[in-house]
Amino acid sequence: MGALRLEAVRPRVLAPVNLTLEAGELVFICGPSGSGKSLLLRAVADLDPHAGEVWLGTEARSTMAPARWRQRVGLLPAEAFWWADAVGEHFPAAARREQDVDERVAPRSADRGHDDLLATLGFAPDVLDWSVARLSTGERQRLALARLLAQGPEALLLDEATANLDPSNRERVELVVETYRVAAAAAILWVSHDPEQRERLGGRQFGIRDGRLGQTEAATADPARLEDGR
C-alpha cells in the first residue's frame, strides 16, 4: 500500500489542491455544504473531468486503467446507490463465491474476514441474501462501506460515512474504518461534519474556505505538506 498524493487536483469550484497522505494516514476535511468537499473526492476518484494528477505510491493515476484506479482508491459517496436486487450481488465475486457453492459441500469458512467485517458492522452473514429494497438508510450506508472494503481498496475516500447513523452504529463504522486503516495501511481522506468525530479519531484536519483547502489545526502534522497551488 502506498501514500496518496494529490498534485494540483482542481475540481470545479476549488483552487488547485496539493496534499499528501502517507500510507495509513487519516486526514479529515470539513467545510460548509456546497464548498466542494464531495467534488474533491469525486475528482480524486476520477468521476468528474478536472485538471491535476493523483499518485498512489509510485503509480500515477493516468497510467492506470480507470476501473483499476477506482477499485484501488475506493470512494464511499454520501448516498450509496445499489444497482441490483440482492445485497450480495453488489459484492465482488470473491466475497460472494461462498454463496454460490452448495453450503453442505463447502462450509462457510471460505471467507472468514468478510463475515467478520459484516458482523462488526452489525449484520449476520445472511445479509447478502437480503433484498436492497428492504434496507433502511442506515443499513444501506453501513453495507455500502462493507461493499467498498470487500473490493480491497488501498486508499479510502469517505464522504460523510456516518451521517445517517445512530451513535452505536457510528462507533461500529469508525471501528471498522480504523481497523482497516491499520491492517491495510490505507490512506484515508474523510469528509466529516462531526467535530467530535474528528476529535475522537485524530489526524490532520483541513477546511475549505473561499474555494481553498487549508489546514485548520496544525497539531499533528508538517505544514509544509500543504502547498497552496495558485
Binding site: A45, A65, Q71, G74, P77, F81, P92, R147, L148
Partner: peptide, 12 residues
C-alpha cells in the same frame, strides 16, 4: 447514481 456506483466498484 447507480451507474457511477458500478464505476466506483471497479467496473468498466
Amino acid at each position: 447514481g447507480r451507474i457511477e456506483a458500478r464505476l466506483l466498484a471497479g467496473g468498466t
